[in-house]
Design a protein around this nucleic acid. Structure first.
Lengths: 345, 345
DNA sequence: TTGAAAGCGATACCAA
DNA sequence: TTGGTATCGCTTTCAA
């Protein structure tokens, strides 16, 4: 007999096994009361016979836990976020949990609606990669839903956070470009009103300053965090008066757009312009030329986030800082080792 | 007073409004019984005052509908699938529905587990882009859960399906390469055991045959549907004995890998090798060179799928065939119009 | 070790 | 137009 999801209830099983409904639960949940071996077997047989599967909704209502988690991201089409979602889903599923996809389409209003919806649906926790840092967690706190923010959380916040230090990462990337002997290192930043844009600009600025180079505002090319944004910034850069021989790009999509602009303008990478970007994924290994990039440890971030969420301990504003990595490829001028595509994507 | 999700129940609202619990439901659900204007206002006030939000879980149990849908894909990191998930989620959310992410990691066993999990969670419907065509829908049918398969559904199946004709698409792509005057058109196919690989091979074969060119098996380069697969196939192609001056590539990821191999081997695209790939996304517009590609109408597919699922009518094996589009870019040798990046990604 | 029964928080029927 | 209440299918306490 196959499954019979949605048609057979605990009652039928109890009937078939000749026991009470409670005992069926004890067997299914392996507790909280013990069951004798013989009775257990009868129940197991009855379950197999009827194809019974517990109704998760009823269980959630009674138990007060849904084993459902909400993931909020600005846009699942961003390869970095897709990779993150992939890792999170794998990890969740293998522990019997399930993930709701919340894609805000880069819209803060929508983001808030998603959060409320998830809370109304009684998710057991939320993993939030915000459109920007200033995530509004009041609704979640009021409802007592644990949140892990994938960014430096606002200080004093009750949310936990898992992140890399973006300022340090931007600093390392810029420093690397300077070590290649470049003198005029620009930055393609995200929207300047975003706090996360500011962090990356700060890191870039610090590296220049440390090298006694003026971090002029004219070296900052503001753009949306998209391919189109990077493309436009590239056009501005290549047709403008400012001369740059290197650039730190605030995300991978922008770098892909920049590459397209460079091709169009006949700008050679890395000869004329060296590039390092932030949040590289497998795309950086397959672009032409390949992109040197700051990489976040996606697996680690996924696992850490879930660990925080699953911990029964009181949920406070702990934070886990992860290590980033500078992946050297062609775009910065490094003599690099070709990627081994062990993780096939 | 802010929200109070998870703390205030209908009981408190009824108390505050001085009415019965039933009336609160009538107001919240706008039915099924009428409520006088004055009473309604009292209830509305009480709701605002208490910050009440209905418990979705309890509602689901009582109403027998969760307004939750399951999306099953082989891998959300695939940009085409990410774009699909994005479109589906936007559409679902704007009608008060929610999407569970099921990423099988290209594993058929996992795929089946996800299906069962979703059914146990009483999703109202499932949208399934299978690892391969031979999706096993028995569990879903037994449970009476509607499914939309994003592929030609097995004939006689009770599932609905939304798809493009992949054979025709492969035919069109190959024909286009032939029209560019190429004579030796190869194919990078997916795993040959896959039915969807076969379809694309068929289309390629038909185009060659129609042009009285032998569709030799030596022109078929089998590879996984990944960048790494395309890269390996490219290496095999460029270092092998078979001469090709064009190739139809069975998906975009493989084409990206092929581009990397071409760069490595000094093969010029499109001069030495013309390329058209299947399932192009924004990545094809930003690769170097840009990729000519068969595009699926993702928005249309998303909307059609949801329409099928939401229709109250008896759910039968209807199918909707969508139009594909051949997007001309640089890789096939076309004199093409540059993309306008209106939809910023 | 078992089972009866009180919730969980809604929907919606039936009576008033 | 209202309100009391059976019901959804389960968890878990409490008594036997």
């Amino acid at each position: 007999m196959g499954l019979n999801i949605g048609k057979v209830t605990r009652r039928e099983v109890a009937l078939a096994a000749g026991t009470s409904e409670a005992v069926v639960s004890y067997v299914v949940n392996n507790g909280p009361r013990p069951v004798s071996a013989s009775t257990r077997q009868k129940v197991l047989d009855a379950i197999a016979e009827t194809g019974y599967r517990p109704n998760t909704i009823a269980r959630s209502l009674a138990a007060g836990s849904t084993k459902t988690y909400g993931l909020i991201v600005p846009n699942i089409r961003n390869p970095f976020l897709a990779a993150l979602a992939h890792a999170l889903q794998q990890e969740m599923f293998s522990t019997g949990r399930v993930l709701l996809l919340g894609d805000s389409n880069d819209n803060k209003e929508r983001e808030r609606e998603i959060l409320r919806t998830f809370i109304e649906r009684r998710v057991d926790g939320i993993i939030w990669y915000g459109v920007d840092r200033d995530v509004d967690m009041r609704d979640a706190h009021a409802a007592g839903v644990p949140i892990v923010v994938l960014d430096k959380a606002p200080s004093g916040s009750e949310a936990a956070s898992v992140f890399i230090n973006e300022t340090e990462a931007a600093f390392a990337a810029t420093k690397h470009l300077l070590e290649h002997g470049r003198n005029s290192v620009g930055i393609i930043s995200g929207p300047r009103k975003n706090l996360n844009s500011q962090d990356r600009i700060d890191g870039w600025r610090q590296a220049l300053t440390l090298n006694k180079i003026a971090a002029s505002d004219r070296l900052i090319f503001e753009a949306g965090y998209t391919r189109g944004g990077g493309y436009a910034a590239g056009k501005a850069m290549f047709s403008g008066a400012v001369q740059t021989d290197a650039v730190f790009v605030s995300n991978e999509l922008q770098a892909l757009g920049l590459l397209a602009a460079a091709t169009e303008f006949g700008v050679r990478i890395p000869e004329d312009l060296a590039i390092v970007c932030f949040n590289g994924t497998i795309n950086s290994a397959f672009s032409n030329p390949t992109l040197s990039a700051i990489e976040q440890p996606i697996e680690t971030i996924a696992k850490s986030s879930i660990n925080l969420l699953l911990r029964s301990a009181p949920f406070a504003g702990e934070s886990i800082e992860c290590d980033f990595r500078l992946r050297r490829r062609a775009s910065c001028g490094c003599d690099y080792e070709r990627d081994t595509f062990d993780r096939d994507e």
